[in-house]
Design a binder for these strands. Structure first.
Lengths: 187, 187
DNA sequence: AATCGAGTGTGACATACATCACAATTATAA
DNA sequence: TTATAATTGTGATGTATGTCACACTCGATT
């Protein structure tokens, strides 16, 4: 398990063994079951999470009780309600398991500590944040330029695995269309 | 002018005079006229920009020749085709002046240099990137949860100034609706 | 002053998508 | 296994929004 975290970071930045054990002492390994909530709307968001195995959804429940999926988090992704995490306020969204899931959890305090004491980690977080930002911009772009069918095809192309792992209802909720419309698109 | 840059950074992180002049020697001050392109689609993206005065639009031109506004950049905002900037590839979007605009320009090389040699700047960029990421997620959320009228009202509430500074056609293009629909919404 | 073009409003109509209802199938649990 | 819930497909219909066409205003240019 440790190895997976090491690989994940070294994918961007090489680490000495000392550096890695320092990092390891600042995160905790956690297991969740399908349908468990890792973050619940309204709670203080103390942690962000690296998915080791499994699959998460970051969802927003609107005033009509409808669920909207802001993001899926697959293996090797960091996820949280980052807006609440960085400002240390209450979650507007929930983070819930679609499958049994294992994660590394990083508290905000330790995030700050790692950033401050290990320049390499600050660099790591910076690069992660930049790529997260780019990914979000691409998603915005797809809402601006594409209709439901095109967005569906883009999603399939980008994450063919997702298609087999999550019910269509959730895909629809991610794409911003009703499940009925999505069903008609695929046929 | 220098003062505005100093204020902007010190809004997040205090600087000594030496640190600030080091930073200043790594950016360049530039002036553009209304309708000028700062970045053109297809070019290599060498710089990102801090808007000192004026107003920019980040636009994507789709295959049908239709323009989509991914973002407006007002005073005190950093903007670029960040995806292309960070990967040092060609721009998928253009950055164009809606008004006469002055900016500080930061090359990718100097971005890396500042990040590497001034920990405070790495911290600064990290915090900027995090808040940019949050902002993008909020925009995604508004596409998922709101119809055109609601998105319009949210925009007005968040940036009342914008409303007076840019033609409705551009607001429509930002909101992802036709100008006719937007016109009918406001009445 | 006359002309031009950008920005805007509005009617008529077309289309994409949502909603509601119901049936069929497949997974899950007792 | 049987029962129960979750998932999916599909028809009928309503609504939001897009598209096309045209007119009007207003500021800029000559």
């Amino acid at each position: 398990m440790k190895e997976k975290l090491k690989e994940h970071i070294e994918n961007l930045i090489p680490l000495t063994d000392e550096e890695f054990s320092f990092i390891l002492s600042h995160v905790s390994f956690e297991k969740y079951k399908k349908n468990d909530f890792i973050i619940q709307e309204g709670e203080n968001v103390k942690n962000c999470y690296l998915v080791v195995n499994g699959l998460l959804k970051l969802v927003y429940d609107d005033k009509n009780g409808k669920q909207h999926i802001v993001s899926f988090a697959m293996e090797d992704w960091w996820e949280s309600d980052f807006s609440a995490y960085f400002s240390q306020t209450k979650a507007k969204m929930s983070l819930q398991c679609i499958e049994d899931t294992t994660v590394y959890s990083l508290s905000f305090k330790n995030y700050q500590k790692l950033s401050a004491e290990l320049p390499k980690m600050k660099q790591f977080f910076l690069e992660k944040s930049n790529s997260g930002h780019s990914a979000s911009q691409n998603r915005i772009l797809s809402f601006l330029t594409s209709n439901a069918k095109e967005r569906y095809e883009q999603l399939l192309k980008q994450y063919p695995l997702l298609f087999q792992r999550v019910p269509k209802t959730l895909l629809a909720s991610y794409l911003g269309v009703s499940r009925e419309t999505l069903s008609r698109l695929s046929s």
